[in-house]
């Protein structure tokens, strides 16, 4: 028993649990919009594309969130620019742009110095988060969460039916840009916890799990937050015993929850669907 409670005796563990659950909550809320909008690849792209920004921020001695945020915006602008001026399909453009920026980041790291811990940027290091980084994470996450909550209903309408949103006078161009900026900010806030490579899981898995569990958006948000926070807490806790790989533990927990929902969700899970199909067939055979 004492061994199980031991992690809670350390400040760094409490801090990690706090930060990762905050990040889990913010990502989960956004994930509902990202999955419904079909922007998973965009999330993956922006998260990889921030790498050069993080390195540059280190070189210029700036807060890492600023460098990452700027490069997040650069990547989405480049994607939009190229897509509107060429015949290449959107997912292709996204792939081209983010791999280019990610590679640029890798080259920069190899040229710069060994002080930048590549693995920390790529995979996160929430157990070793500094006070400074913690504040940057909290501020970026809080701003993103605030923006989503304020724009929540307009973003939902935009994601569901942009034509109608425009018809009733909403500024869909603004909502598109707002969603991208919020995406970049959220990714930035999650960097310390899960790193560049796994951020995308935080941005889609909770939303995907919740989507299997309900047909109502507000409930979907709460369920996503619940699975996101639970995964962050469990993953961080387990990683204490593994001595690392916190981000991966969090993502794995999310994946397990998704798997459970996929199988056992009351209406949209595999078992429920099979049962439903069997009942329909039997009713038809008898009728």
């Amino acid at each position: 028993m004492d061994a199980l409670l031991a992690p809670l005796g350390y400040d760094f563990m409490l801090r990690a649990l706090l930060v990762s659950s905050l990040v889990g909550a913010v990502c989960a809320v956004l994930s509902c919009f990202i999955t419904l909008k079909g922007w998973s690849l965009m999330g993956d792209a922006v998260s990889h594309a921030v790498l050069p920004g993080v390195v540059l921020a280190y070189l210029l001695n700036l807060p890492f969130v600023i460098g990452a945020f700027v490069f997040g915006l650069i990547s989405v602008s480049a994607i939009g620019f190229i897509q509107s001026r060429s015949r290449v399909k959107e997912d292709t453009v996204i792939g081209v742009v983010f791999t280019a920026l990610f590679s640029l980041g890798l080259v920069m790291i190899s040229r710069v110095s060994s002080d930048v811990h590549l693995s920390h940027i790529l995979f996160g290091d929430v157990l070793g988060i500094s006070q400074n980084e913690l504040w940057q994470t909290v501020v970026a996450g809080a701003v993103a969460l605030g923006a989503i909550l304020i724009l929540r209903r307009d973003l939902l309408l935009y994601v569901f039916d942009a034509t109608h949103a425009r018809s009733i006078g909403l500024n869909t161009g603004f909502l598109y840009a707002a969603l991208l900026v919020i995406l970049a900010l959220t990714i930035v806030s999650a960097l310390q916890t899960v790193g560049v490579i796994l951020v995308v899981a935080m941005l889609i898995t909770p939303g995907a799990t919740a989507y299997l569990l309900t047909d109502r958006f507000s409930r979907m948000m709460w369920l996503a937050v619940a699975t996101g926070v639970l995964s962050s807490l469990l993953g961080t806790y387990v990683s204490y015993f593994l001595d690392g790989a916190t981000g991966a533990c969090i993502v794995l927990t999310q994946s397990v929850l998704f798997g459970l929902a996929f199988l056992f969700a009351p209406k949209h899970g595999q078992l429920a669907r099979r049962r439903q199909q069997r009942l329909e067939r039997e009713a038809e055979l008898q009728g």
């Binding site: 304020i150 209903r153 307009d154 309408l157 009733i168 909403l170």
Partner: peptide, 12 residues
């Protein structure tokens, strides 16, 4: 959603 254009800041 038909009413949303005329709702206030938080669209309640």
């Amino acid at each position: 959603m038909g009413r949303q254009g005329r709702m206030g800041l938080l669209r309640r």
